[in-house]
């Protein structure tokens, strides 16, 4: 279908210069986008007015209870997956994939719902699942540490603000993580 649109070969002052801009084949065809959304929308401000942004962000907040139920289910599922791993030394591709899928979702959604500590630990878990070579010792205890730290943070309702319980959990998590990484 792209061929049905009018095309223009790039000419003039901004013509691609040098082999890199011309592409590997030596040709770089530049096609003005036929998509003209502005015709339908008209003009608008570059940024959302503050009042409207607050109103919409409140819509996100209104779904917090729903999210916390989902997070409960996801943390239970992570625990179930960890418990089902047979070889504690190294994960299979399928095991890694199953854990990553849930942790990745949590890291994207937890912070939107005030679960900042859970979100950041989920991000750390994703990093080590994405790069399993960073774990020098057996992989499962390292992964289980992250899952249990998320469960503890969620159970203690830690939102990321300065909090004595939060600091205790994080200090314990950091110490255990450092120990496992240096094993």
């Amino acid at each position: 279908m792209a061929d049905q649109h009018n095309r223009e070969i790039w000419k003039g002052r901004d013509e691609p210069q040098g082999p890199r801009e011309r592409g590997k084949a030596g040709d770089c065809e530049v096609i003005p986008s036929p998509i003209k959304l502005k015709v339908k929308t008209g003009d608008g401000p570059a940024k959302l007015p503050r009042k409207k942004a607050q109103e919409l962000d409140q819509l996100i907040e209104s779904q917090r209870d729903l999210y916390l139920e989902i997070l409960d289910q996801e943390l239970r599922e992570l625990r179930r997956l960890v418990a089902g791993i047979k070889n504690h030394a190294v994960l299979t591709v399928e095991e890694n994939r199953g854990l990553f899928f849930i942790a990745h979702r949590i890291r994207g959604e937890a912070v939107m719902n005030g679960q900042n500590v859970v979100g950041i630990i989920a991000n750390l878990l994703c990093e080590c699942l994405d790069t399993p070579d960073m774990i020098r010792g057996p992989q499962v205890p390292f992964i289980a540490l992250h899952v249990e730290a998320m469960v503890a943070s969620h159970a203690a309702q830690i939102t990321g603000e300065t909090d004595v319980r939060a600091q205790e959990i994080i200090n314990g998590f950091k110490a255990a993580r450092a120990k496992l990484l240096s094993a």
């Binding site: 065809e29 530049v30 096609i31 003005p32 986008s33 502005k38 940024k47 959302l48």
Partner: peptide, 21 residues
Amino acid sequence: AQTLYTRLVSVIERPRPFVRT
């Protein structure tokens, strides 16, 4: 909401030409 909106503005106001190699 603000992040989503700014990306909408970007595709409306600054439609990028396409490149074919």
